[in-house]
Design a protein around this nucleic acid. Structure first.
Lengths: 247, 247
DNA sequence: CGTTTAATTGAAAGCAGTCAAACTATGTGG
DNA sequence: CCACATAGTTTGACTGCTTTCAATTAAACG
């Protein structure tokens, strides 16, 4: 448990800044949060469905995803976690996890004791606000996913997920139009979209053939962002991102 | 705007009690919240996608649902609101609504100014907690819906929604096993489940034929709760309801 | 009691799933 | 550096759940 003057929690700050304003004092207070750093290899569970933890985990580098499993053993990915995200914010106040969190790539994770987070939130209104706003923006993403899976066909659905991922990465400093690495296999994409890996493969190929996306190994580029966004029925409004002058 | 000694907000209290504990003082403070009562006929919009309000709305009687619309005009219901629910809790901190809220039946709704709610939350930690827990329990329901729509077939999906609705009503004092009135048309059910009304009709009939549910007009009874819950792959854990001695 | 809204039913079409095999990367140890 | 193993992707043929379209019946309503 380190209390040192590291800035390893800087990504937690920028994660919160995506949705809310924080003063320099607030930011400094977050950076001072007690925490321990852990590394997880790819495919490792950070949180297990049903677990009760006394800490929250923040991704500092790498990607992870949350998923649930039906009684029949089918998996559904319910969210993709990018650096800066508190992966188990739900548990901040709930008594147990209702889904698992698993790494998509090797991850560096900071563990912050819930107690410290709560104390900080009660001491600093702006931070409590930022946490609530983050949780509510996350809920908005869930709503969009419900619509995406419930009412859009496979092609639109996949395109929408790609756009969302790009838009969220964009906020964390990765420019749009630039290639980004999609850390999910087609099977994981299918599990996130309510599709099979086979159909993801076919549909993705259709998007490539139509020149809407370019693939290079795991890297993805959008040569025509506007065309893809139109095809995806994508509008970043639901992400509730605030427009920042680069912090 | 009434400040009187009414107990019209009692349902707001019991809504919050579903997920959190509140002292008598906390409860009294909620009942004293300034608010105005409004009545809405069936099919009326309480919140419009994109709106920015300075108040939150609590359902006192009747049912409502939140929905979004794709670019193609397809509708997706993202949640069903029952008495006691703050229908636009998301907006408590977000700057605009990302989905619409429409009444399913005639509704009595209390409007509480956001400012008053925020003041109360900052004065009383337990109330702030209860609001956060409510929001997080709502997020958990979203996650379950994503899995329900993404990974379960029509029959299981419908059964699951029926179980969830019953379980949530149960907390508000309606005993399980008793018939309850499902206020949604089959078209609305379809919009909530990512199905067409036609297929809802067929599948619902299958459940009736198998003796898992009994329909009487809009009324629904579950003669064999356990069998239905098994068929629905339903486990109320994700609702994050706390077991109360009847308040 | 007519009018509107909701539910039911049938037949046909289609999107996505399933199964299986081939192919391509990626990675490891000799 | 190659051989082999493993994980992931692609492809084809076939199946099937759900949709679509249309018509009918039933319920709700003023």
């Amino acid at each position: 448990m380190s209390n040192a003057l590291t800035n390893s929690l800087a990504l937690m700050v920028s994660g919160l800044l995506a949705h809310a304003q924080l003063s320099d004092l607030d930011r400094a207070a977050i950076l001072r949060l007690p925490h321990s750093i852990r590394f997880f290899e790819r495919g490792i569970y950070i949180v297990l469905d049903g677990d009760a933890f006394d800490h929250c985990s923040v991704i500092l580098s790498g990607f992870a995803f949350s998923h649930k499993t039906t009684g029949e053993g089918l998996r559904q990915v319910v969210s993709v976690q990018i650096p800066g995200k508190i992966v188990d914010l739900q548990q901040f106040r709930l008594s147990f996890a209702d889904c698992s969190v698993q790494t998509l790539t090797r991850c560096e994770v900071a563990r912050v004791p819930k107690v410290a987070l709560r104390t900080l939130a009660s001491d600093r209104v702006a931070i409590a606000d930022a946490l609530i706003v983050s949780a509510m923006a996350e809920a908005s993403i869930y709503r969009e996913w419900i619509m995406n899976i419930g009412r859009r066909d496979a092609r639109t659905r996949i395109a929408h997920l790609l756009c969302e991922f790009a838009a969220r990465l964009d906020v964390q400093g990765i420019a749009p139009g630039q290639p980004y690495e999609l850390p999910m296999t087609q099977e994981q994409l299918g599990d996130a979209l309510g599709l099979t890996a086979v159909h993801v493969s076919r549909t993705l190929k259709g998007l490539v053939n139509d020149g809407l996306i370019v693939q290079d190994r795991r890297g993805i580029t959008f040569p025509k962002w506007d065309a893809l966004a139109a095809e995806a029925d994508f509008n970043r409004r639901y992400l509730h991102l605030i427009e920042h002058p680069a912090s």
